[in-house]
């Protein structure tokens, strides 16, 4: 098996890996789009490059960013997870309920918050196991399984909130606030967590057997199976990793507004998938890069930010502006490859 490993990613890579110049242009596509967007933002508004604005944008990106890192692995191995947004809402709801229920007994303190966090992480992992087992053991398409669980999680949070909003106990909120609003050496906590997740993700994708197996399975499942890769186990792991990362994002989301409702995390799954694709991962699987995903997430957040900082585009055309930028960002890398 170890001998089979190095040969697989090479087979997995699309023919774009040609001469060095083309490779660079392909690699730099998303980065180029990001730079163009930053130049556009800076020329439209003087506050765009202010530290406060940059901190805001990056902190906001962290939720979908952390989720998108997980989605990179799922998509690279040829899977798909549509349930992440609903799962985040559900986990946030349960965390809030657990913390609120514990406060009368244990009082307000870090212990209660830690228990809430642990419950969130365990539930997130279990939700991932559920998705993963249905896909690998149940032999159902990932699209159908996660479409189903997407509806289930969304309904569950609506049910738990009785159709309204679950709000975190006010005193706990004060203790928990720093997890989103706090800074370490001037950098917001969620940005630090996002960066750590991204770096670990990039290392896992490039330097571990797990990452290489993901590419191999996404590229050709049959070949991967013949190469003695435990296809089902690796698949299952990608969904568990996705579930845990959704939980990590939720841990940072809850202290922001201290509430969860049926509108929490709506369309996060599409944002995460879009970020992954903008970043250069192929939707049909086989090739993924985590750093590209990070750039994709930041591009998506910057579009919203620029629209809010200017009056250039009529608010009615926000969606069109987003669509154009997303397509352009992908066009920048793909057109180079097509002509090669």
């Amino acid at each position: 098996m170890p001998r089979a490993d190095p040969s697989l990613p090479a087979a997995a890579n699309p023919p774009g890996r040609g001469p060095k110049l083309r490779l660079n242009l392909h690699l730099l596509g998303p980065l180029l789009a990001l730079i163009l967007l930053v130049v556009l933002g800076a020329s439209l508004n003087g506050n765009f490059l202010s530290p406060a604005n940059i901190a805001n944008v990056l902190a906001r990106s962290s939720f979908t960013g952390i989720i998108a890192v997980g989605a990179t692995f799922v998509i690279t191995s040829g899977g798909l997870d549509l349930s992440v947004g609903s799962m985040a809402a559900f986990l946030a709801g349960v965390m809030i309920m657990v913390i609120n229920a514990l406060v009368p007994q244990f009082g307000v303190g870090f212990g209660v918050i830690a228990i809430g966090m642990a419950v969130g992480l365990v539930l997130g992992a279990l939700a991932g196991v559920g998705n993963g087992l249905l896909i690998t053991r149940g032999r159902i398409e990932a699209f159908i399984v996660t479409l189903g669980t997407m509806g289930i999680f969304r309904s569950l949070v609506t049910f738990l909130a009785n159709g309204g909003t679950l709000s975190l106990n006010f005193d706990v909120m004060d203790a928990y606030r720093p997890a989103y609003y706090g800074t370490v050496a001037g950098i917001p906590v969620p940005v630090i967590v996002f960066a750590l997740v991204a770096i670990l993700g990039e290392l896992a994708m490039r330097r571990t057997p797990f990452g290489r197996h993901c590419s191999a399975i996404g590229s050709n499942e049959q070949v991967a199976r013949y190469s003695a890769i435990h296809v089902d186990r690796v698949r299952l792991l990608t969904y568990v990793l996705q579930g845990v990362l959704v939980a990590v994002a939720t841990l940072l989301y809850v202290p922001r507004l201290g509430s969860a409702s049926s509108t929490t995390g709506v369309l996060w799954e599409l944002e995460a998938i879009a970020a992954v694709i903008i970043g250069g991962t192929t939707l049909r699987g086989g090739y993924g890069r985590v750093w590209g995903t990070v750039i994709g997430v930041v591009i998506l957040s910057l579009i919203d930010n620029i629209l809010n900082l200017t009056n250039v585009v009529s608010p009615y055309l926000n969606g069109a502006f987003q669509g154009v930028i997303i397509i352009l960002a992908v066009l920048l890398q793909r057109s180079r490859r097509a002509t090669s």
């Binding site: 508004n45 202010s50 406060a52 922001r256 409702s261 509108t263 809010n308 900082l309």
Partner: peptide
């Protein structure tokens, strides 16, 4: 009509 979007848009208005 959404909390998260209210937060984001207001953040940007505050820096603008």
């Amino acid at each position: 009509w959404n909390r998260d979007d209210g937060f984001k848009v207001m953040q940007d208005f505050l820096s603008r």
